[in-house]
């Protein structure tokens, strides 16, 4: 569905991505794990056109994403839950959800999707009329996911959804990701929390300083001693 080939991105003279390739198959949960600064966010930003790559190609269902405008992506079923949630603080919860469906005009289906999002996150329903800036971090993350779902995405990319959240809420969010995936949405998930991400992923990539160093199924990577040592806080090998 999404194929990144030999992607290079440089900020000024510094190469953030040094030729990475990866593939996301339709219907799967694919995760990209790695430490802070490995280039994970840059990868996602390149996909949605917020960062311009130096070389390489990004194709999505046969379309060249490098020539597609960011604002057109959502019409083609691509959505991004950005790092740090980035809900619109000056808009209410309801408006944030509506803005997720901004490009759509099918009022009836939008209403249905709204009910679906509210059923996934009952907390949001309680807060419908509240300004999003007044929500807690966890609620904002739920809203960011809900907003993304309101666009009826085919591919939902998520940048560090667990960042700064309590373990219980992280568990909730990851359960929702699985649930959304079951409904047919392909997921590309970026995480520092490798343990949680690899547990729900069909496939994982490990990224280090701008390169992909390992790839495999979620289970394989979880069992890999190097991954264990570097990302899963396993001290047994010391």
């Amino acid at each position: 569905m999404l194929k990144i080939d030999n992607l290079t991105v440089a900020y000024g003279g510094i190469e953030a991505l040094k030729g990475i390739s990866l593939e996301v198959e339709e219907g799967k949960i694919v995760t990209l794990v790695g430490a802070n600064g490995a280039g994970k966010s840059t990868t996602l930003r390149s996909v949605v056109g917020l960062t311009k790559p130096k070389t390489g190609t990004i194709t999505y269902m046969g379309m060249n994403l490098l020539v597609m405008k960011t604002q057109e992506m959502v019409r083609n079923g691509i959505t991004l839950v950005p790092e740090g949630r980035r809900v619109f603080p000056n808009l209410t919860v309801l408006e944030n959800l509506k803005i997720g469906a901004f490009y759509r005009n099918d009022e009836k289906n939008i209403k249905e999707d709204m009910e679906w999002v509210y059923s996934l996150f009952p907390r949001l329903k309680e807060r419908t009329w509240q300004l999003s800036g007044t929500l807690s971090g966890g609620e904002q993350q739920m809203l960011a996911v809900g907003r993304a779902l309101m666009s009826r995405p085919k591919l939902m990319m998520m940048d560090e959804p667990s960042l700064g959240l309590a373990p219980l809420i992280i568990k909730d969010i990851f359960n929702i990701i699985k649930e959304v995936n079951k409904q047919g949405v392909t997921i590309l998930l970026i995480e520092q929390n490798a343990n949680a991400a690899l547990h729900i992923a069909d496939k994982g990539y490990v990224m280090e300083t701008g390169r992909i160093t390992m790839a495999g199924s979620g289970k394989e990577l979880l069992a890999n001693p190097e991954v264990k040592k570097a990302y899963l806080g396993d001290t047994a090998h010391k």
């Binding site: 949605v48 917020l50 960011t70 604002q71 057109e72 992506m73 959502v74 019409r75 959505t79 991004l80 950005p82 980035r86 619109f88 603080p89 000056n90 808009l91 408006e95 509506k98 803005i99 997720g100 901004f102 490009y103 907003r147 666009s151």
Partner: peptide
Amino acid sequence: MAMRAVSKDIETARLMG
């Protein structure tokens, strides 16, 4: 609504289409 969204966060507004 688009105006209010753009006034807070241009990038995310683009992502919303």
